[in-house]
């Protein structure tokens, strides 16, 4: 078959060859991102339709596994500040967050019994963007992917049990509370 009749981009491949070029330009990346966003959105709503609230648990487990996997190479620490730094490295720019507290509260970190909590404000989030791309509400199953991801990563780095609760969602930022239980491993 003469490929030059079909495409201008011709190349030579050997089985072991890692291509030097990814192929495509920024527009292709954008198109791919939007297709994936639509797929993810559609999968999430179908999952919810079939399994109801069980969808949250499934997506949470998937996220948690990802979190554990991604944080495996990170330094282990019991220091919350360091763990948050590691978490930001795992989550990257696409899930950019900062610590947040009301102005009247002295410290970002609150200690109660054997639990410590810190509020995290997520300014950027790919999940939020995916939901907006597909017209789905926030706090649905897809949000559980990020909860699971965070919990998995924190548990991996700190070797302690963690929990994430959603406080509030908006189109420009979401507030979450991360709880670490010191006694539970």
């Amino acid at each position: 078959m003469d490929m030059s009749e079909i495409t201008d981009t011709l190349g030579t491949f050997k089985p072991e060859l890692i291509p030097k070029e990814t192929g495509g330009n920024l527009d292709d990346y954008e198109d791919a991102l939007h297709v994936l966003m639509k797929f993810m959105g559609s999968m999430s709503s179908a999952l919810e339709q079939v399994s109801g609230r069980g969808a949250n648990a499934i997506v949470y487990q998937a996220g948690k596994r990802m979190g554990h996997e991604s944080a495996k190479m990170m330094d282990k620490t019991e220091d919350l500040e360091k763990a948050l730094y590691e978490l930001s490295e795992v989550l990257g720019e696409e899930f950019y967050f900062i610590k947040w507290k009301p102005d009247a509260q002295d410290s970002y970190v609150l200690q109660k019994d054997n639990e410590v909590t810190v509020k995290l404000l997520f300014m950027d989030c790919v999940v939020r963007q995916t939901l907006r791309r597909t017209g789905l509400p926030q706090k649905g199953p897809l949000c559980y992917l990020l909860y699971g991801y965070m919990v998995g990563a924190v548990e991996e780095v700190m070797d302690l049990k963690a929990k994430v609760d959603i406080d509030h969602v908006g189109p420009n930022a979401c507030l979450k509370t991360l709880t670490i239980k010191w006694s539970a491993k």
Binding site: E30, D124, Q129, P171
Partner: peptide, 12 residues
């Protein structure tokens, strides 16, 4: 004077 989150969901 607020941060503006990325809006990659909008088609360029």
């Amino acid at each position: 004077d607020i941060h503006v989150a990325k809006r990659l969901y909008i088609d360029r």
